[in-house]
Design a binder for these strands. Structure first.
Lengths: 222, 222
DNA sequence: GTATCATTTAATGCATACGCAAATGAATGC
DNA sequence: GCATTCATTTGCGTATGCATTAAATGATAC
C-alpha cells in the first residue's frame, strides 16, 4: 500500500498530469518552469524532465521565454483524435476477435460493461466514465499490440479534460452500452468483421456526438 | 546554408537519432549517459533531455544503472508497426481522396512516384527508399491530421534501421509503384473507398514481405 | 506622439557538483 | 571452495549557479 519513494521527475510527471486533467493548470495557460518547480517543491531539473515528456505526449508545449503552455483542444483536435481512436481500436477489436479468447480473458471487458449499466442505472456519470475508460483500455489490450495501447492511451489523455467537461452536457449514454455488448459478443464469437465494424461505428458515433456538442456550445478551446 | 546555432539538446537529439539510424549506436547496445555526453562533446544535461525525448519516441530505453539501451526490433515489433501504419495511412488516403485536391496539391506525391520509377530503372535502392519515404509522408500530409502525421513519423523512425537492412535483401520493388499510382489516381478521382482499400492492401503486402523476410533470415533482432 | 535604438531584466539552456543507491569486488567465516 | 557480509566504486537523480539571449523597458530623436 505504501507509495514507493518515486523520483522527483516521476512525481512531477504524475502531479503535472493530474493538475492538467483537473484543470488546475488550465488549458491555454502559461507557466514558468520555476513556478512549477516551486509549486511541486523541487528544483527546475526534474520539472524540465517531466515537461519534456509531457510535451512529447502532446499535453503541453514548451515555448522558450513564454513559459510552458498547457495545450488547449479545439474541436478539430477532437476530430483528429477520435479518427485515430476509431481506426486503432477497431483494429484491436478485430484482432481480439481473431484471438479466440476464453471467457476468463474477457472478464474484465464484461465487468466494465456491467459496471456501465450499473452506473447508468444510478445516473453516476463519473462511474460510467471510469468504466467506459476501462472498457476501451481493455479492448485495446486484448488486441495485443503494445504500440496501439500506448498511442490510444496518449490520445485518451489528450481528450480527457474535454470529455469530462462534455460528459455533463449530454444525456445519459444509455444506448452506448448496446454497442459495447455487441462488440463483446462478436469478440467472443470470433467474428472479427462484426467486431471491427461495430466498434468502428460506435466510435464514429461518439466522434459525431462530441464534435457536434462542442460546436453547438461554441466551445472553441478546452 | 549555414547551420543555425541550435541548442545542445537539439543537437543531441539529432545526432543521436542519426547515430541510431546509421547503426553507429547498434541495436541492443547500452551506453552510459556520460559516454554519450563525451561523444557529443557536451555535458550530461542536454544528453539526458535528448534521451528522454527519444525514449518517448520509442527509439531507446533508459534503464537506470544499465545504461541507455538502443531498442532492437523483433519481427513482432515490425508487425505491430506495420499494422498501425496500415490503418492510419489508409485513413489518410481516404481523407485525401475526399479533399478534392487539385493537381498542384498532388504534385509532390506524383513526383515521389516518378522518382521511384527512375530509381528502379537505375537500380538505385537508396534513391528508391528515399522517394518511397516521401510518397508515404506526403500521402499522410494530404490526409490532414497532424497527429497521424506525427505518429506515422514516429513509427517510420522505429523501423528505419530494419527497412534499410532488408532493402538490400529482396528483389527490386518493381510492382510496388503500380499500387502507388492506383492510390494516386483514386485520390485524384475523389474515390475514397478505392484509395483506402488500395493503400491498405499495399501496406498489408509490405508487412507480409518484410516479416517473412525477417523470419526467413532468422533476424530476431535488428 | 511615434519610432528607433540602447539598456535592463529575467527565463532558459547548460555545466557542474554532490549525495545516494546499486553494483562490484574484497574479505571473512564456514 | 563457497557463501555472506562489508567496503568501494560508479552511475544516476537532483540542486545550483552562471552565461546567454529574448523580451521588456526606457531613452532619445524625429
Amino acid at each position: 500500500m505504501s507509495d514507493k519513494p518515486a523520483s522527483s521527475s516521476q512525481r512531477a510527471l504524475h502531479e503535472l498530469r493530474e493538475k492538467i486533467f483537473a484543470g488546475e493548470l488550465a488549458a491555454g495557460s502559461d507557466h514558468l518552469e520555476s513556478e512549477l518547480a516551486e509549486q511541486l517543491n523541487m528544483s527546475r531539473t526534474p520539472v524540465r524532465e517531466a515537461v519534456l515528456m509531457l510535451e512529447s505526449q502532446g499535453l503541453l508545449e514548451m515555448r522558450p521565454r513564454k513559459g510552458v503552455r498547457i495545450r488547449p483542444l479545439a474541436p478539430e483536435d477532437m476530430a483528429e483524435i477520435y479518427d485515430i481512436l476509431t481506426e486503432l481500436e477497431s483494429l484491436a477489436a478485430e484482432r481480439a476477435a481473431q484471438a479466440d479468447l476464453d471467457e476468463d480473458e474477457l472478464k474484465d471487458l464484461a465487468k466494465a460493461i456491467d459496471d456501465m449499466d450499473i452506473a447508468i442505472a444510478q445516473s453516476d456519470l463519473d462511474a460510467w466514465a471510469n468504466a467506459d475508460d476501462r472498457f476501451h483500455a481493455e479492448l485495446v489490450r486484448l488486441g495485443r499490440n503494445e504500440r496501439i495501447m500506448s498511442i490510444v492511451h496518449m490520445m485518451s489523455d489528450q481528450v480527457r479534460r474535454a470529455r469530462m467537461t462534455t460528459l455533463f452536457m449530454r444525456p445519459l449514454p444509455t444506448k452506448s452500452n448496446e454497442d459495447h455488448r455487441r462488440v463483446y459478443q462478436a469478440i467472443k464469437d470470433g467474428d472479427a468483421k462484426t467486431a471491427r465494424e461495430t466498434h468502428r461505428d460506435h466510435r464514429r458515433e461518439a466522434k459525431k456526438i462530441i464534435v457536434d456538442l462542442l460546436q453547438k456550445h461554441r466551445l472553441r478551446f478546452l
